[in-house]
Design a binder for these strands. Structure first.
Lengths: 147, 147
DNA sequence: GACTAATGGATAACGCTTACTATTTTCACT
DNA sequence: AGTGAAAATAGTAAGCGTTATCCATTAGTC
């Protein structure tokens, strides 16, 4: 509760529901997926409000935006250090524990860059859904006339 | 030259110019930036052709697509193992050598994932342009009436 | 040179995200 | 509780990067 009341910020019903629902999930939803979920509780909320609050919550450090994760942004309310696998096929994301330490960035100097802020390890994988879909596709290619 | 003639693929003027120009660059251009460059040699080429061939070249393993959520995709013809820093502000990308080894993925098992394919280390940074812009912004905030 | 399939050019459509505007809500101070 | 200024919301339009469509053109093969 108290973490909802950051200094200089107001708490609205929409904002708190968005944060609550995101915290219930470990599925790293997209803005639209979260919108569909929040809409069950707040039927009149607009998608723009979800986007606006996801920006707000990210900038105030309450959630994370998964940056290097494909085409659509995904969000994560788990603030503990962990890493992610992303399905190369559908973009689904899962957590990886425990984290292998990412390298230090203090001593890295790159021409054209003023500072290196952080490093992170990312994993590409194939989720079970896509693996199954791929398998049945290949089967269809081998037996094109089977039902 | 011979690497332009993959089996089952045709080489066209457009495709080869796109690949040539991308190979000249280490700036990891966006599709549109590359389009502007290629247009100097092929004034009648269309942006769609650039996109189509970037997909083709990526899928045939001749170039890499640098994906990051929310940002514009960038492309890299450097196929040697290396890593990238991305400017958190403008999305500019620079190379990092030598690479710190990314962890093995053979023994990693994640619920919901059939396979972990690979891991990679990514860096976030602040490029010099954005650092300078940020500095002068802050200066303006402190001295709002100066010039 | 003719044929077939792939490719290109131009443009429309699409999906995700942000911007805009009028209205409503929050919160500090009475 | 009431008031008012600042901020947030709903609804919608616009923006941007990317993909799809459609017909004309080109490449490679015979």
């Amino acid at each position: 509760m108290s973490d909802l009341h950051h200094p200089q910020t107001r708490m609205t019903q929409q904002r708190s529901v968005i944060l609550e629902e995101l915290r219930k999930l470990d599925t790293h939803p997209t803005a639209d997926e979260l919108y569909q979920i929040v809409r069950l509780r707040l039927p009149r909320i607009s998608l723009g409000t979800v986007y606006r609050n996801l920006v707000f919550l990210t900038e105030s450090g309450q959630i994370m935006r998964l940056e290097s994760a494909g085409n659509t942004n995904r969000f994560d309310a788990n603030m503990q250090p962990h890493q992610h696998v992303r399905c190369v096929c559908c973009g689904a994301i899962a957590d990886i524990f425990p984290p292998v330490m990412a390298p230090e960035t203090d001593r890295i100097h790159v021409p054209g860059f003023a500072r290196i802020l952080q490093s992170r390890i990312e994993y590409d994988g194939l989720c079970e859904k896509c693996a199954a879909a791929k398998a049945s596709e290949e089967a269809a290619a081998y037996y094109p006339n089977s039902a």
